[in-house]
Computed example of a mutant assay.
Amino acid sequence: MTKEPFFRLNQEPEALSGFSRTVAEIEWLLLVLMLFYLVVGHTEESVKIFLLGGLCAFAGFVMAFHYFNFFTQANIWKLALETWVMILLITWFVWHTGRQDSLLLNLYFLPIITSALALGKLTTLLEVLLIGSCYLYLGKNDLAGGEFFSLSQSSVLLTWLFPMLLVGYITTMLSNDIYHAFSRIKTTAQTDELTNLYNRRAFMELLEKQLQQARRGGYTFSLLLGDCDNLKSVNDQYGHEAGNLLLQTIADNFRHCLRGCDTAARYGGDEFTVLLPETTVEAAERVAKRIKDTLVASSFNYRSNAITTDISIGIATYPQHGDTAEALLYHADQAMYANKRESKNQVAAQVAI
């Protein structure tokens, strides 16, 4: 478990919901602009009715994605699909309203800005390339077959695409700055400053998510709750600086003993918690024993004094020992203190609730 927590804004459920609402507003704005053009523009009645039918279909698409609950939650693929549909709609509408001479060509900026804000550089670049292909397609009837990729046409295309590339690049850079600032803020808020593990609040959020996934998937997971056996004596004998080094030693031990999918946290004071996805109680006991053995075998020097430590660990497994966060933590806590009372070199989960 060597990775540090890193948060992407467009992977946070609340942020995704916000992006989804913004995309819906942009889609309605796009729809209103096209309807306005049909009202004030010079378009043949037969074409106007045809375009109006397409806009009604697009309105149905937007309502299905945002108001009919076809999707239980927003996600990146949903946002990407919506931006691609916007590009296709704009191309279809522009084709019937003047092609490369249409007044609506600037509507392509809407999906570009949306993609740059929510989806990142690669998706935005792919969408710019798609828009460039659409632009060439819109003007193909005005070109001879051998001139489709001519130097003059390429120059026109690049001149037309440059503002979109510039807007997409600048918007993406700004969104990346926001992402990194958000990541630093959230990492600080959810990380224990001393040990650089998750703090209690972050761990409880992860535990609730693990419970939801386990209930849906029907699989098991285990929870370890550990308490340092000699922090108070180290603080009393050597001072709090040595005690802090002791806690950091325990945290480093977790990083070396756990899998990448496991999560360790400083639960408070000298207590630590570990979340072990898809782990039975027997496997959790082996993990706990490995943690204890590795910790007992290690030591650190403080002012020429070799300091060692041990940890008492209690285990709780879902659903065997409870189906809520409170029940699992209570069972692990009882098991931990039973171990501490009986012997400071035991691991167990068999404690009555």
Rank of each mutant, 00 (worst) to 15 (best):
S152T: 07
T97Y: 00
Y108W: 15
F149Y: 12
N141M: 06
N106L: 14
R8S: 05
P111V: 10
Y238E: 05
Q11E: 11
F182E: 04
R341A: 14
I353V: 14
N244H: 09
F221D: 00
Q11I: 00
D192T: 08
G139T: 01
L29E: 04
T124R: 03
D333E: 12
N301K: 13
F58Y: 14
L328I: 12
R255E: 05
E44R: 05
L122Y: 09
L225R: 05
S175H: 04
N10L: 01
Q190A: 02
A24R: 09
V47D: 03
G243F: 08
Q11T: 09
P319F: 10
E326K: 11
N196V: 11
T294K: 10
Y179R: 07
E4L: 11
E82A: 14
A74Y: 08
D101Q: 10
Q237D: 11
T279D: 06
E205I: 13
A181Q: 15
P277L: 10
Q73F: 13
G132T: 04
S175Y: 06
R290E: 12
S343W: 04
L110Y: 14
L211A: 00
W92S: 04
Y169E: 00
W77T: 09
T317F: 04
L125W: 08
Y267N: 01
G53T: 05
M164P: 00
P5L: 13
W28G: 00
T294W: 04
F36D: 02
T22F: 13
E205C: 05
F162I: 02
H180N: 08
V281G: 01
Q248I: 15
A264S: 12
H256D: 03
H331W: 13
T91D: 07
N244Q: 05
F19A: 03
Y169V: 02
S133D: 06
T309E: 05
S102W: 04
Y108N: 08
L207N: 04
S115K: 01
A116M: 05
R201A: 06
V347L: 10
L165A: 06
R200L: 03
R21D: 15
A214S: 13
G18F: 08
S298E: 13
V296A: 15
D310G: 15
D252A: 13
G41T: 11
